Amino acid sequence: MQPKDRQALLSAIEQYEAEARRLAGRVSENQRHFLKVALEKGKELAPTGRMAGPRI
């Protein structure tokens, strides 16, 4: 890949990332708490059986 092409690719990636962040909006405090607990507890609190839903 030529340096010029690489710069164009990196620029496009930066633009897509910025647009994705803008469209995603902000993470609410409730979502942040949910993710924090999920990281701390892991699969320990994952639902099992019917509550887990179908396996695909």
Score class of each variant (00 low, 15 high):
1 M>N: 05
1 M>D: 04
2 Q>T: 06
3 P>K: 06
3 P>N: 06
3 P>L: 06
4 K>L: 11
4 K>N: 09
5 D>R: 13
5 D>Q: 14
6 R>E: 13
6 R>A: 12
7 Q>D: 09
8 A>L: 12
8 A>Y: 02
9 L>W: 14
10 L>Y: 07
10 L>H: 10
11 S>K: 11
11 S>I: 00
11 S>Q: 14
12 A>Y: 05
12 A>L: 10
13 I>D: 02
13 I>V: 10
14 E>H: 09
14 E>Y: 04
14 E>M: 08
15 Q>N: 13
15 Q>E: 14
15 Q>R: 14
16 Y>C: 14
17 E>G: 01
18 A>E: 14
18 A>R: 15
18 A>V: 06
18 A>Q: 15
19 E>S: 03
19 E>Q: 13
20 A>F: 10
21 R>P: 01
21 R>G: 01
21 R>H: 05
21 R>I: 06
21 R>S: 03
21 R>W: 02
22 R>N: 12
22 R>H: 13
22 R>F: 08
23 L>Y: 05
24 A>L: 07
25 G>W: 02
25 G>P: 03
25 G>Y: 04
26 R>H: 12
26 R>A: 13
26 R>E: 15
27 V>T: 02
27 V>R: 03
27 V>G: 00
27 V>F: 00
28 S>P: 01
28 S>Q: 02
28 S>C: 01
30 N>W: 12
30 N>Y: 13
30 N>I: 15
31 Q>E: 15
31 Q>G: 03
31 Q>Y: 06
31 Q>H: 08
32 R>S: 13
33 H>E: 07
33 H>I: 05
33 H>Q: 08
34 F>W: 13
34 F>P: 00
34 F>H: 12
35 L>G: 03
35 L>P: 00
36 K>H: 14
36 K>Q: 15
36 K>W: 14
36 K>V: 03
36 K>C: 05
36 K>N: 14
37 V>C: 02
39 L>M: 09
41 K>V: 11
41 K>M: 12
41 K>L: 10
42 G>M: 01
42 G>S: 02
43 K>E: 07
44 E>G: 03
44 E>Q: 13
44 E>A: 10
45 L>T: 12
45 L>A: 06
46 A>C: 09
46 A>G: 03
47 P>Q: 04
47 P>H: 01
47 P>A: 02
47 P>M: 01
48 T>R: 12
49 G>L: 00
49 G>S: 08
49 G>H: 07
50 R>G: 02
50 R>Y: 05
50 R>P: 03
51 M>R: 10
51 M>L: 10
51 M>D: 11
51 M>C: 04
52 A>W: 05
52 A>R: 15
52 A>Y: 04
52 A>E: 08
52 A>I: 04
53 G>T: 04
53 G>D: 00
55 R>L: 00
55 R>A: 00
56 I>T: 07
56 I>W: 09
